[in-house]
Design a protein around this nucleic acid. Structure first.
Lengths: 143, 143
DNA sequence: ATATAAATGATAATCTTTTTCATTTACAGC
DNA sequence: GCTGTAAATGAAAAAGATTATCATTTATAT
């Protein structure tokens, strides 16, 4: 279950940030997309509503949204620095290497492995990054 | 078990690439470091041996080494585009969020999860990215 | 020793991301 | 509804990161 535009906007306000039309538009761009978008791609989308928006505003908004964990940054498949809508619960991603579609999956926990690592290395584990990359059904057929 | 400078160099040659002093030096920079280095950091290190080396050579060498899977690219902890020595077997990384030390761990397989995802989504899974981030023992003490 | 394809470094071009700062705006409080 | 104020925006430029081009150099097979 992905966060909707409404929920992201509400969370922004709840944290004391102003809800400007530009920010709304950035959120909409991300929330309305099945796949992950780079800052430049978001910029292009948002400019349809706000022709005079600056790329800076995109970067600033993305920073905040990532920090509040309302959107996720993806890494697998060569595309660092691209973003997709967040989700309220702990989850991971499955990304299509062809079309970029992102599927969330939850219910998988790395607690045991985390404990093993902690025990064996003395690390105090703070987080992890787990992403799968593959071909979605659609892209398999059209090959 | 990490690949040594020797092994990486040998593998390069085996794949038909020339073993230049510059490439040797890039490999040494990465292999001799406990943690992960950005292209710029590698550039600085290598310039001690090769004051006239170009940053381009660093990028070109990194490209090749990644493609041959002789070095790994790290993503967790904010530092995309940084590199550490590869390993001959399937493994994952544990990265210190403070000093950047990288620990490899192996013996963990995601086959079951992979099958579940494949079954549930129809994706043909090609690979994955699993990295943990945390504080190493040293950095926990010096806080 | 030599020929040759591959690799290098200098330079410039192209992105991408950050800084700075004057102007504008969302919204809390009245 | 107004209004004051801190926060947000956009323009412009600076700073960083990455890639392209090309003449020169070099590793290595023979």
């Amino acid at each position: 279950m992905r966060l909707t535009e409404r929920k992201i906007a509400a969370a922004l306000r709840r944290h004391g940030y102003k809800l400007t039309p530009q920010r709304r538009s950035v959120i909409r761009a991300i929330a309305s997309s099945q796949d992950h978008l780079t800052p430049a791609a978001i910029y292009l989308k948002v400019r349809q509503d706000h022709p005079s928006i600056g790329l800076v505003t995109i970067y600033r908004t993305l920073d905040i949204l990532v920090r509040l964990e309302l959107i996720c940054e993806l890494h697998a498949g060569g595309s660092c620095h691209s973003y997709t809508t967040g989700a309220p619960e702990h989850h991971h991603h499955l990304i299509c290497s062809n079309c970029g579609e992102v599927i969330d999956f939850s219910g998988y926990y790395l607690t045991e492995l985390e404990q093993r690592l902690s025990r064996e290395t003395g690390f105090k584990i703070e987080g992890h990054l787990l992403e799968f990359i593959g071909r979605c059904q659609n892209c398999q057929q059209n090959d």
